[in-house]
Computed example of a mutant assay.
Amino acid sequence: MSHSIYFNLLIHSDKFSVYRAVSEPEHLANWWPLKCTGIPKEGEKYNFNFTDDYDWYAEVKSVKHGEHIHYKMTKSDADWDPTTFGFDLEEKDNGIYLQFFHKDWVESNTNFKHSSFCWAMLLKGLKDYLEKGIIVPFKDRE
């Protein structure tokens, strides 16, 4: 049995701004990792660098410009390596409905629970980044 994290939130922004924020390295680094490289194209590699000890990699498993991007972890830690996470975007009258998932966790252990909490905090940071232009300094992100 695998475990999954799901969050849905409404972001008062346009679809392409939200898509860029979850797919383009220069925007990802404004709300999630310290540094990031990658190209939003299926099969491409992303580097999510948090520290020298947390220098992680993923591959783009599925992408449709302006609609979704899904990443499969390829080099991280034992808990994250089997996982896939992604962002699906749906246009609504008052913004973009972002559906986030992080699935295929082998155990519902401390790392899973901590990651779930962190994703909630980070997605709030993504919302504030897009709606208010707020960039939380990396050292202050959960």
Rank of each mutant, 00 (worst) to 15 (best):
S4C: 07
F7W: 10
L10D: 10
I11Y: 02
H12Y: 05
S13F: 08
K15C: 09
V22S: 01
S23T: 07
E24F: 08
H27V: 03
L28P: 05
P33F: 02
L34W: 07
L34R: 13
C36A: 03
I39E: 14
P40A: 00
E42A: 07
G43W: 08
E44G: 06
K45H: 09
K45N: 04
N47P: 05
N49Y: 05
T51P: 04
T51A: 02
D53A: 06
Y54H: 11
D55N: 13
W56N: 12
Y57S: 10
K61W: 00
S62W: 05
V63G: 03
G66W: 01
G66S: 01
H70D: 09
K72H: 12
M73N: 08
T74Q: 02
K75L: 14
D79F: 00
D79A: 09
P82G: 06
T83H: 10
E91T: 07
N94H: 08
N94E: 13
H102A: 01
W105Y: 12
E107P: 06
E107D: 15
N109K: 05
N109H: 07
T110N: 13
K113R: 14
S115C: 15
S116R: 15
S116Q: 14
W119S: 00
A120M: 15
M121V: 14
L123H: 04
L123Q: 04
K124L: 14
K124I: 10
K124W: 01
G125I: 00
K127H: 05
K127V: 07
D128W: 08
D128Q: 11
I135V: 15
V136C: 07
P137R: 01
P137N: 06
